[in-house]
Design a protein around this nucleic acid. Structure first.
Lengths: 369, 369
DNA sequence: TTGAAAGCGCTAACAT
DNA sequence: ATGTTAGCGCTTTCAA
């Protein structure tokens, strides 16, 4: 007996009097029931209601009567029924899919992407969303990849990182009208869109203040060359903390490219200078590890002889006992997914101010500082 | 004029009875044509063929006549048409989606997952697949997550890493009949399933032989405690190379937990022993970095005073100039996606031997060795 | 509160 | 070689 026929047969009668027990019993396809995926029709049949009522129990329970709802819920549970997202998506044009753009260059920031992705996956799963990956070699090819993905699926929203000056993705997405959130502020652009970021200046300020509290009076900063929004932001945190505490800045900062060797050299230059610092805050863990290695190579012990604090709390930091400013990746991911959810709840035409969140990072104190 | 109506009008001709040419001409929705996503119907209309023919041009071009095909292809290109995967998936029960299970613990192996994920995304994109992420805290919750995902979508296949002894996921998936590939051999189980892995023994053998070639006679190995399949595999590579070359093994190996401090200590103990090694091969980059730090702290320079080689070529390795055995992540990802493709091509009933591939890693020689 | 009908966009099966 | 019909599983719309 086909499921559809069964449903119809069972539905004979007023609201739910039950005019069942017909005679037919063979099903056209010989598939055993147990192996067939439950459909909304099979559940409807089992609960002796229409498919629509089952749908309502799932998507709009308030519209369904108390008794009916319970009966349907039991049928759903017994069948282990879950709506097929593909069919829902086709009908509603909502996929519950969040596309995430991942970068491909190898660099300091990439050590974070794994943690961020994991956090996103957890948060998305918690709210019934799924994470779909997309990648491109540069802005242009990434845009092409986004375009294809957005054409192939009814993606609910896009999340990506690595926003930078002159980012071509943002205007493209704004123009296309795609919903998106970035992990990272827009640097040097006036376009407003939802973003989540971590307060780098605050993090470095916290680190510097921590060093001041434990007695340091000469605190250096190893940063990146100018032009990077992230770098300038973090640098400013060190300046603020030192100024507020009345500590010197002069000759205590270095501006270099990211890299362990660069960090070693900058550290050496600082330690060899007339008024050597007793503590060094670095814009990245990579540079901090360089400093850490230099201190170690000189027979010193980071934290006892020279304090060192990095940024990002990469796996390496915990490995070598490097204090570091940790980005709250789980919180950032949660905010991203929340944002996607609210973007999709709104009818689309209501243009409220885009959500922009700055999260406070957390200083992880280890042996080095 | 609505697209559907247009199609009907243009189809006036023999095959179809064609009782068209009605009078109505306004479209209910006032949406401008340009903003509407092209559908197979709109393309069919533009090319004056049936939807089925458009579908054939895309999915079975050989069934379509030369002229028609070109005309349809032009219409597809002009409209920028791409089939909606959601609708295809509903009809064909193939989603072109590959689910990837990602672990959540932080450890040495996790440094690799990011590269593997990126490679998978690239390879999947290249072949028209998409990567969907799924995660769980342990085997059991991961299985639950898999189950829900597999129920929600018609996932084409599952890929996951971190196979281990007593892995519960493998029997569960085999029993469920889900198509899957693992990146990592099944350790200590007889169940056969498709997998891709890297030849750890071969990689360590290569590293050891490289050290022998450049003149080392006493080569040590820092490995993990027994019980880990991966660890024993790599250890055996060192033993083989040394035995073959007639070099000593005695007192030249250490078996410790992964960790930088452990690596430092093991290195110190080796260097302080009566017949100290001149080179050290490590089962992981973490331990190798520990050794690297110890040598550096003693005022030595890795590569000049003591050679050190790690395993996995983690970001750390390139950062500090540590030689390391790199896993061919792109190749592994490509094999995984190929495998998924062939699994889905087969009708499902043809039970050929599962694909099992062992890839050769590549020694990256840097300053340390 | 519940049910029937229609249809999302696509393709398998069958007709021509 | 091409077209017609039906239907994947679900939800929207409208009727009862």
């Amino acid at each position: 007996m086909s499921l559809e026929k069964a449903r119809r047969l069972e539905n004979t009668g007023p609201p739910g009097p039950s005019g069942q027990a017909e005679s037919i019993d063979e099903r056209p396809d010989g598939a055993p029931d147990g192996l067939r995926r439950p459909t909304i029709a099979s559940v409807a049949s089992a609960a002796a209601v229409s498919r629509q009522t089952v749908s309502n129990v799932i998507n709009a329970p308030h519209r369904v009567g108390e008794q009916t709802r319970r009966r349907v819920e039991r049928a759903i549970a017994e069948a282990g029924y879950r709506p097929l997202k593909t069919a829902q998506a086709l009908r509603t044009r909502r996929s519950n899919l969040i596309a995430v753009g991942i970068p491909n260059a190898d660099g300091a920031r990439n050590l974070l992407i794994e943690g961020f992705l994991h956090a996103l996956t957890v948060e998305a799963q918690r709210r019934g969303y799924r994470i779909l990956l997309v990648t491109g070699a540069d802005d242009a090819s990434e845009i092409k990849a986004y375009d294809e993905l957005l054409t192939d699926y009814d993606i609910d929203a896009l999340v990506f990182t690595g926003t930078h000056r002159g980012d071509q993705r943002i205007p493209w997405l704004l123009n296309k009208g795609t919903r998106f959130v970035t992990f990272g502020r827009p640097w040097g652009t006036k376009a407003a869109h939802p973003w989540v970021d971590v307060d780098g200046a605050g993090g470095v300020r916290d680190a510097t203040e921590h060093l001041i509290e434990i007695g340091h009076q000469r605190i250096a900063f190893i940063g990146w060359p100018g032009g990077s929004g992230v770098g300038e932001d973090r640098l400013s945190g060190w300046e603020q903390a030192c100024r507020t505490a009345g500590l010197p800045l002069r000759d205590l900062s270095r501006r270099i490219e990211d890299g362990l060797e660069q960090g070693r050299q900058a550290c050496a230059s600082l330690l060899d200078s007339p008024k050597a610092p007793t503590a060094i805050v670095c814009v990245s863990d990579t540079l901090a590890v360089g400093a850490w290695v230099e201190v170690t190579a000189r027979g010193g012990r980071p934290g006892r002889d020279v304090a060192i604090i990095g940024f990002d709390d990469s796996p390496m930091a915990s490995m070598i006992g490097l204090s570091s400013v940790a980005q709250p990746l789980s919180a950032a991911a949660a905010v991203c997914v929340d944002c996607v959810q609210s973007l999709n709840r709104s009818t689309g035409t209501s243009m409220t101010a885009p959500l922009q969140v700055l999260l406070a990072p957390k200083l992880i104190v280890r042996a080095s500082g």
